[in-house]
Design a protein around this nucleic acid. Sequence first.
DNA 1: CAGATGACAAGAT
DNA 2: AATCTTGCCATCT
Length: 138
Amino acid sequence: MSSSAALTRYQKIYQVVQQIPAGKVATYGQVAELAGLLGQARQVGYALYRLAPNSEIPWHRVINAKGQVSQSPCRKGTDALQRELLEGEGIGFNRAEQIDLKTYLWQPASSTLKAPGVKGIPETISQQIKRQDRENNQ
DNA sequence: CAGATGACAAGAT
DNA sequence: AATCTTGCCATCT
């Protein structure tokens, strides 16, 4: 820890991830929005990359928008571990090693946050903003 | 101090 | 449908 900043973006991200309940998952983009980093899903991945595998933070409940677990080239096996942890919480994977977001996505109460790009679930806030931005631009 | 880099996501081609 | 491009920022050399 060489950072002296009071509350960095990464720390906000960690706080959000800690709120994900067992048996549910959140996408990187969703965590970013909840952390006040709209549209910066990448930062979430960067932040989680910094975590130790034995961290108190439930990093394994964060998956990508396709419903698949991501993996780090530096940490072989973390994807398998992540899958085991999730299955241990009752989360099911289909044949394509994907999680059904419609069933398992964390949907915080009193929030309009939804899953990105999932059929049957409305677009995320960042998607709404981008779409409106696009329409204005035309 | 400048540049490289790292668990993503969405639009464009 | 698959691949490429861009946006974003904290850390480490």
